[in-house]
Design a protein around this nucleic acid. Structure first.
Lengths: 243, 243
DNA sequence: CCGACGTTTCGTCCACGGCCGAAGCGTTCG
DNA sequence: CGAACGCTTCGGCCGTGGACGAAACGTCGG
């Protein structure tokens, strides 16, 4: 019996395995999930999120950094960690999408959960009811075209967003999509990601339409924000209330 | 010192961790990578791909199936395993994208490697030089719009592909994108995935433009295929030769 | 300059999980 | 009907790696 050897000795596969194994540890998954909020967090904060001690956290952070999943920034006696690139965030997203459909995970909707469902950050863009409503509105008004899983900004959309003061850079040359959809795990519908999604979040934060809720990915919509979302995007506050 | 407990005890994060841990084992990563070829494979074949014994493979397959990553089909004394859904394939893709940029993995381009670079399947669509060239052509001719990472089929595109006999279902209602881009790890440029990409692969196989190479994700372009790709898509054979 | 704090390093323990050989079960041949 | 085959189950071995306490390092505050 003549036995050939496996393809080429597990070439691209063990690259995947390395990355997936890093994400596959509960503590590290918690760390990465916490960083999916989009903010840089200190080792101590991440230790809290991961529910493990400081030494263990430090070891995890070292591994994640060495593998290029995290970027670290020293600031005084703190070290701020963040996801190294949007690619990492997207990998996490698609893993969430897989995890969401599997055998029903234990998910008792707590009180904090409700805030997350209303509005939260998803790495660098908005998710939850606010995020999906924004996507719906822009789609209905013909500013973006949502075609199942694809997304494209129209010229009208460029004008509209430009009118709001959002500089939407021209397409081309970027590795990163101008506009892509991201499946919302709570709404099970798409919301907007990519450079456009990031611009919407940045703008909303800068203008005080929303504020981050500490120790959470959830964001709260301010009174001013409520008005702005209504006038600019036709999103009434009751659209965002828990159903 | 008053210590609050972590968010809600690691809710969505351990779903991710579970999935990632499954992918994170080298043997399982090899199994999943082999199945990224898009064909259903038997336990024995997967055992060979994974470079582990039959019992070990069986255990891995059981875990992957139980988690909903694989679907199994009994046929006589064989069991055919395949990826359970396109979501899984997409998660693998994005992990590859992350793995590709990290510290230069050991990747000596072997002889088989060259065949993979020319043309191969990527789950259910075409990749390699052939895949990226197809995407380029359709884009240049205005049949699809590639905007960095986004993709959209135009009405012209629908007509053109319809003329080729590819039934492109209307958009809407599907969970799966009609057309999305997928980053090609060998070309480092986008190729077409989604329902459109799948239709292109199916069509190419059915009409004998390409044939699968055994034990590999690579496909060979037939003489007939060479002509068809040239006349229909303006892809000359020299475009596909190793550079 | 000393103490408090955030973070990392070191050393150690221990449990989880991957691996295999042998055996069991079901299927397909001759 | 029995032998060969494909796959799974069982039992046991062993290595990897995640956990923590103690201690070292570096930075900020009084």
């Amino acid at each position: 019996m003549h036995m050939t050897s496996p393809p080429f000795p597990t070439a691209s596969a063990n690259g995947i395995a390395t990355i997936a194994a890093l994400i596959g540890d509960p503590a590290r998954a918690n760390i990465l999930s916490a960083l999916m909020g989009g903010q840089a967090l200190t080792a101590g904060e991440l230790s809290w999120h991961a529910s493990v001690g400081a030494p263990t956290t430090s070891a995890h952070l070292a591994k994640l950094s060495e593998a290029g999943l995290l970027a670290v920034e020293r600031q005084g006696r703190h070290r701020y960690y963040r996801l190294a690139s949007p690619d990492i965030a997207q990998a996490m997203e698609s893993l969430m999408a897989v995890a969401a459909v599997g055998p029903r995970r234990h998910r008792p909707p707590g009180p904090k959960d409700e805030a997350l469902r209303t509005a939260r950050t998803c790495y660098d863009h908005l998710a939850g009811r606010l995020g999906t409503k924004l996507a719906d509105t822009l789609n209905e008004r013909g500013f973006v075209i949502l075609d199942d899983g694809s997304a494209l900004v129209t010229d009208d959309g460029r004008d509209f967003l430009g009118g709001l003061g959002l500089a939407i850079p021209e397409a081309g040359g970027h590795r990163r999509p101008l506009c892509r959809v991201c499946l919302d795990w709570s709404e099970r519908r798409p919301h907007l990601a990519g450079r456009l999604g990031a611009a919407l979040l940045t703008c909303s934060l800068e203008r005080g339409w929303i504020v981050r809720i500490p120790d959470s990915r959830a964001v709260a919509i301010t009174d001013a924000g409520s008005k702005e979302f209504a006038t600019n995007f036709g999103i009434a506050p009751e659209h965002l209330a828990a159903k």
